[in-house]
Amino acid sequence: MREALLYPRADCLVFCPTMRQSMEMLRKVRALGEPVRVIADTKTLIELENGSRVICLPDSQEGVVGFSAPRLVVINERSRVSDELYKSARPMLAVSKGQLLTLSTPFGNAGWFFDIWDDSAEGLKRRAKLHEPWQRTAMRASRIPRITPEFLEDERAELGERWFQQEYFLRFLDPIDAVFSQAVIHGVRSERIEALFDLGA
Rank of each mutant, 00 (worst) to 15 (best):
M25Y: 08
P70W: 02
E62Y: 11
C16Q: 02
C16R: 01
F113D: 01
F15K: 00
R80Q: 14
L13S: 06
V65E: 12
L13G: 04
Q21K: 14
L72Y: 03
D11S: 14
R53N: 07
K43G: 15
S60H: 04
N76E: 15
F114L: 04
V36E: 15
S68H: 14
W117Y: 15
A69R: 15
S82C: 11
G33T: 12
L72P: 01
L57S: 02
S104H: 03
V95G: 07
R20M: 10
S88V: 03
W117V: 03
A121F: 08
V65P: 02
P35K: 07
G108I: 02
G66C: 10
V74Q: 02
D41Q: 11
F67K: 02
T105M: 09
L48M: 10
L32T: 09
T18D: 07
V36C: 13
F113S: 01
R30P: 00
K97L: 12
T105G: 08
L85V: 08
I39S: 06
G108P: 01
L85A: 04
G123Q: 05
D41V: 07
G51L: 05
I116H: 00
R9C: 13
R80N: 13
I46K: 00
A31Y: 08
V29Y: 11
R80M: 13
P17Y: 07
R90P: 02
Q21D: 12
V29E: 07
N50Y: 03
D41H: 12
I75L: 15
R80A: 10
I116R: 02
A94H: 11
E122F: 09
M25V: 10
E122P: 04
I39P: 02
A69M: 13
R30K: 15
E49M: 12
D83R: 09
R53H: 09
R9N: 15
L13A: 09
S82R: 09
P91F: 12
G111K: 01
K43A: 14
S88W: 01
S68D: 13
L85H: 01
V36K: 14
I46L: 13
G63F: 03
V36D: 09
C56W: 01
F107H: 06
K87E: 15
N50K: 07
A110P: 01
L85Y: 03
R80V: 09
D119Q: 15
L103Y: 11
R37W: 05
V64N: 01
E77R: 06
C56Y: 03
G63N: 07
E62M: 11
G98D: 08
K97V: 04
E47G: 00
W112H: 07
L93I: 09
T18C: 10
V64P: 00
E47N: 06
S96I: 08
V14D: 00
V64W: 02
T18H: 07
V29H: 05
R30V: 04
V38Q: 08
E77V: 05
G51C: 09
K87M: 14
E47W: 01
L57R: 05
K43N: 13
P8D: 11
D83V: 09
P58D: 07
V38D: 06
D83P: 02
R90N: 10
R27Y: 08
L57Q: 03
G63L: 00
A10H: 04
E77K: 10
N109F: 01
R78M: 14
F113L: 06
M92C: 12
D59M: 05
K97P: 03
S120T: 15
W117R: 04
M23L: 10
A69L: 10
A31G: 12
T105F: 04
V29A: 10
A110V: 07
A89I: 14
